[in-house]
Every structure is written in C-alpha cells, then in structure tokens.
Design a protein around this nucleic acid. Structure first.
Length: 406
DNA sequence: CACGCGTGGGT
DNA sequence: TACCCAAGCGT
C-alpha cells in the first residue's frame, strides 16, 4: 500500500450558513469595498466605469477554463489581433483558429469557440445572448461560463461558480461535503450574496479574492475582507477546504513518433482525428500509445520505408490522465519522396502555420533541434527530452537528462 | 456522474 | 522530483 497522501478532514461540525457569534451577516459590500481597492487589471477587463465588451469577456472566459491567467494573456492578445470581432472569428478557417490556439491545451475549447462564434453570427446577429439560459445554449458555454458572461458582460444577477468561488464559499461556510457533491450548496450560497446593483463586479471580486487571498495553500486570511466571518478560518482550518475526493493515479503510456525530414527540408505531418485527444491538431505520424508498448516494436508503425534511426532518450509529456513517453525515430528521405495517404510534407518555413500542440513541438524539437520554432506565447519548445537507457523491456525509471559531452 | 480532455508554473 | 492545480465542458 503506497503511502497515499491522506488529506486531513475538517473537524468543524458547525451548521452551514451559521453566522458568526457577533451576528454580523456576510455581505457583498465588504467584498466590493476590498475589490474597489485591490482589483486586478487584466487585459479582458473593462476599467472601472466602462462597459464590458461581451466578445472579450466570452473569449477570455473560454480561454481561462482550467487555464492560468499567465498562460492566457498572450493568447488573448494574439486572438484579438487576428480575430478582432466575433464576425472575424466566425469567418476564419478552422485551421487558423486551431493554429492560434495551439499550445493552450484542451483543444475542444477551440473547436467549440469557433462553432460558438458562427452560431452567434448566424443565429443572433453577431450579438451574444444577454441571459444565462441563452448563453448556456451555445457550444463551449457551461454553467460557470454562462453565469460569468451574464454577470460580467450584462450585469445579470447570476452565480459564476468556478474553482475560486468553490474554495471561497466552502471556507466561508465550512462546507465539509466533498466536491463535486457540494456544488449545489455552493451555488446556492453564492447566489444568495449577489448584490443586484453590481453582479459583474461581485463575480470578479470573488475570483480575485480566490486567486490572490483565499488561495489553495497558505491563504492570506489576515488580508481577507471576510476574515471575521469565515467559519473555516475561525476553526483554523481554511486550508482544508474544499474537501475533494482522492485522485486516481496517472498511468504511463508509450509509443513511437516518426520524424521524416525530406531533402528539401519539408517535414512529414498529418492531422489527428477531429474528436478526442488533441483532436484536429497536427502531428508527425506515430504509433498508438499504450501501457505495454515497448521501443523494440517501434519500427512496425513506420509510415514509410527509410533508414530509421532511433534517437536517444524519450520525450516525456504529462497529460491530464496519463503520462506519455514517446520514442522518436528520425529518417531522411530523398527530395522527390511523396507523402503517404493522409499525410503531407510541410515546408520548413510553413511549420509555424501548423496547429502543433506542445507535445508534438517537443517531439519535433527532439529530432530537429530547438531552433525549429520561433518563440511562441507559451514558450513552447522549451522542454528538453529526458534521457532513458536503451530498449529495455522493462524500462528503468526515466532519468533526468544526462549531461551531453560538448 | 465519472471520465476524457493539455499545459506550464508553483512548491 | 513529483505532485498540485488553474476563471470547466461535453458526454
């Protein structure tokens, strides 16, 4: 039995919605006062007093799904430049949208983003619906995002419950029920606090509080406008919320990637199936990835006959639910070589136009060198592959890079 | 409802 | 290094 990290359980049995002994009720006003002083300036945010732009709010909310502010910023700016309006986005070819999204992850968001833009233009005259229900009906917009856009862009009374808000509210009320079962209670508690005069500011204030004060670890309770009202804080247990179910262990899958370099410099690529992992994105051809795949079987999946050379090490990449260790094989082929069915040779200068996800950039960089890619917003191509001993049937744990003699 | 779905920074 | 986690959604 591995020494699993047993998470301490909150000891508090205080009933939910209990108000502090002093009797002062939890009030949005305290939070809004704090927000007016400490709000973050973010590229997609209207300045105080200015009206929010629904297109910007929507675009940012989609990008921010499970994605950090730092990662989103450069993508957001670039999207606005390339697609200044929802009409421009709707009219763009999907490859261009996927290319602009490449590196940001969760690529179904990009597909849904494009579909949503088309729907807004075709069915709503280019205007986003201004109600939660109307927004919720659009692709890629779920409960959280509908609430967030309704509140932030249209000042509708709505609960925008994201991970930040879950953390703040479970602490505030010491909701010990584990997520996601506690979602209904969190939503109810949040909605009860929304001030009718400033729903948008309230939504953003809650998120700012969660992001800067009520953080997952070591929350800065001393700076919190709700400190004296927070049930978890009173018990000294803020950090124990929200309670979550234990996570599953992440398996390692292995497979081969084939980097074919034609004499003119072109690289062999293909497009992945539209749905599923990295759906619709570009990649060098490769084998399926599986837990029991071993390097010695790599050649079986080669896309064409060539003098394959297996490169040292593996490219290691962590996805949400598994880790990939890709063995990379490299071959040079003659100038006239034609691409196999369903594949294409992309000229070296056009590589940057391809919608290559980060893992595929890592694989290409492993075979071709880091200099292949111009700097991208996310700094893709940064990671160096780990090194691993050769074709062991039961590969030893991957070792971090061994120094290469210069 | 549980699962599939990326990536990079923080600790 | 090995986790954790971030403004979730669709099925």
């Amino acid at each position: 039995m591995p020494a699993t990290q047993t998470r301490a359980e909150p000891s508090l049995e205080e009933p939910r919605n209990a108000e502090p002994a002093g009797g002062k009720p939890i009030s949005a006003a305290d939070l809004l006062t704090w927000y007016d002083r400490h709000r973050r300036a973010l590229p997609w945010r209207a300045r105080p007093g200015e009206a929010a732009d629904p297109y910007r709010v929507w675009l940012s909310e989609i990008m921010l799904q499970q994605t950090t502010v730092m990662a989103v910023k450069p993508y957001f700016e670039r999207f606005l430049t390339r697609f200044p309006t929802v009409e421009a986005l709707a009219a763009a070819p999907s490859e261009e949208v996927m290319n602009a999204w490449a590196g940001l992850g969760y690529y179904s968001r990009a597909r849904n983003l494009h579909a949503c833009a088309k729907a807004v233009v075709a069915e709503h005259g280019g205007r986003f619906p201004d109600t939660e229900d109307g927004l919720r009906a659009l692709p890629g917009i779920g409960a959280y995002t509908a609430g967030a856009i309704a509140a932030i862009a249209f000042d509708r009374v709505a609960a925008a419950v994201d991970g930040n808000v879950e953390r703040v509210m479970t602490r505030l009320h010491a909701i010990a029920e584990p997520m996601p079962k506690a979602k209904a209670a969190v939503r109810e508690a949040t909605l009860a606090l929304v001030p009718p005069d400033r729903p948008g500011d309230f939504a953003q204030a809650l998120m700012d509080l969660g992001a800067t004060i009520c953080t997952p670890k070591r929350p800065a309770c001393a700076l919190c406008p709700w400190m004296s009202l927070c049930a978890a804080r009173r018990a000294g247990e803020a950090e124990l919320y929200p309670v979550k179910a234990p996570k599953k262990t992440r398996e390692t899958r292995r497979g081969a990637a084939f980097v074919v370099e034609r004499a003119d410099g072109a690289i062999l690529l293909r497009t992945r199936a539209p749905e599923g992992l990295l759906g619709g994105m570009a990649e060098p051809p490769g084998s399926a990835w599986s837990v029991d795949w071993v390097p010695s079987q790599a050649i079986l999946d080669a896309p064409l006959d060539a003098r394959w050379k297996r490169l040292d090490g593996v490219v290691r990449h962590v996805f949400t639910h598994f880790t990939l260790e890709a063995s990379v094989l490299h071959a040079r082929v003659a100038a006239g070589t034609a691409a196999p069915d369903g594949m294409r040779f992309t000229p070296r200068e056009a590589i940057s136009q391809e919608p290559l996800p980060s893992v595929m950039k890592k694989i290409l960089a492993h075979a071709l060198g880091e200099a292949l890619f111009a700097p991208t917003p996310a700094g893709a191509g940064r990671g160096r592959a780990s090194k691993e001993p050769g074709d062991g049937e039961a590969p030893a744990p991957v070792r971090k890079r061994r120094g290469r003699a210069a």
